[in-house]
Simulated assay, not measured.
Amino acid sequence: MNYPVGPIGVFDSGYGGLTIFQQLVKQLPQYDYIYLGDNARNPYGIRSYDVVYHYTLECVRHLFGMGCNLVILACNTASAKALRTIQQRDLPELNGSRRILGVIRPTTEIIGSYSQSGHVGLFATQGTVNSESYLIEIKKFFPEVKIYQEACPMWVPLVENNEHNTIGAEYFIRQHTDRLLSRSPDIDTILLACTHYPLLAHQIAKFLPAHVQLISQGEIVARSLASYLNKHPEMKARCTQRGIRKYFTTESTEDFDTKAQIFLEDHHVRAEHLQL
């Protein structure tokens, strides 16, 4: 059967998914991509499971409508609160030949291998922490690893308002870093389980002991996608390869273009508005 071809869709509730998007483009530049940020309804982290599910499903439907056969939920909250339900309940009715992937599974199936001590810290939004998705998934692959979570509600606003490199930001970064490290002296690996947090990595590193490594998701997710496409040549054949990138936002395109420059090396982002 001949299926239609199209770009790879990348969805996030806002801007943070651009750190995932950037690594996807860096490692797999030949593919076409559509990035959709639901900035008008951001943040998702403070919303209920039902609301996140409905918002995410709506955006996935739009990406399918734009021709995407493969959609990456580049959002930890959406991956935690909506991915499984959409995969199991909605995808067969929407189009069983299409696929939706998240950022939690590829991260959790490898993060334990980074740690020598078996003690892993995790920085995330309150919504991701409350979902316990990382605790559940990591235990499936590394049942012996102990996980220590720390919610950092101020970090996303700092990044999105371009205040993350200021002295004021250091107070909140140090506060949460010290709090996480105080839970176990054996933590030797910390996962940045929010797509905004890689922009804070150099600030966080100032307050970490030399032996503690900081892991971002972008490269992990990109490697996982490359592996997935190689293992599924039928899906790989359905992803167009012309190196075209398009951006859509549910909010102001001017704001998106400006803030996208915080997250991307590409300073020529020109987003289009999407009315949901």
Rank of each mutant, 00 (worst) to 15 (best):
M1K: 12
Y3N: 11
P4S: 04
G6S: 01
G9F: 00
V10G: 05
S13I: 02
Y15S: 03
T19G: 03
I20N: 07
Q23A: 09
L24F: 07
L28M: 12
L28T: 10
Q30Y: 13
Q30N: 14
I34K: 14
I34Y: 14
D38M: 02
D38W: 03
D38R: 04
A40G: 04
A40P: 03
N42R: 10
P43L: 04
I46T: 13
S48P: 00
S48K: 03
S48Q: 06
D50E: 15
V51H: 10
V51W: 08
Y55E: 07
Y55H: 13
T56R: 15
L57H: 04
E58I: 09
G65W: 02
G67P: 12
L70T: 06
L73C: 06
L73F: 10
L73H: 01
N76E: 11
T77D: 05
A80G: 01
A80W: 02
A82P: 00
R84M: 11
Q87R: 15
Q88K: 15
D90G: 10
E93Y: 11
L94H: 03
R98T: 07
R99T: 14
I100M: 03
G102Y: 07
V103Y: 11
I104L: 05
I104K: 03
I104M: 02
P106D: 03
T107W: 09
T108P: 15
I110T: 14
S115P: 01
Q116M: 14
S117Y: 00
G118V: 11
F123V: 07
F123R: 05
T125I: 07
G127W: 00
V129Q: 02
V129L: 01
L135T: 15
I136W: 10
I136A: 09
K139H: 14
F142R: 05
P143Y: 08
P143C: 01
P143I: 01
P143N: 03
K146M: 11
I147C: 00
Y148F: 15
C152W: 11
P157H: 04
N162M: 02
H164A: 11
I167V: 15
I167T: 12
G168T: 06
A169C: 14
E170H: 10
E170W: 06
R174V: 04
Q175D: 14
Q175R: 14
H176E: 06
T177Q: 06
D178N: 13
L180V: 03
L180W: 02
L181D: 00
S182K: 12
S184L: 01
D186S: 15
I187C: 02
T195F: 05
H196K: 05
H196M: 09
P198I: 07
L200R: 02
L200G: 03
H202M: 13
A205H: 10
H211D: 15
V212C: 11
Q213P: 05
L214R: 06
Q217D: 14
Q217K: 04
G218C: 04
G218T: 04
I220V: 03
A222E: 02
A222C: 06
R223A: 08
S224F: 09
S224M: 09
A226E: 12
Y228W: 12
N230V: 06
K231G: 13
H232G: 05
H232K: 04
P233N: 08
A237I: 00
R242L: 13
F248E: 00
T249F: 01
S252Q: 05
T258W: 12
K259M: 08
A260C: 12
Q261G: 12
H267W: 09
H267D: 13
H268R: 15
R270V: 13
A271I: 08
H273R: 10
Q275W: 10
L276E: 13
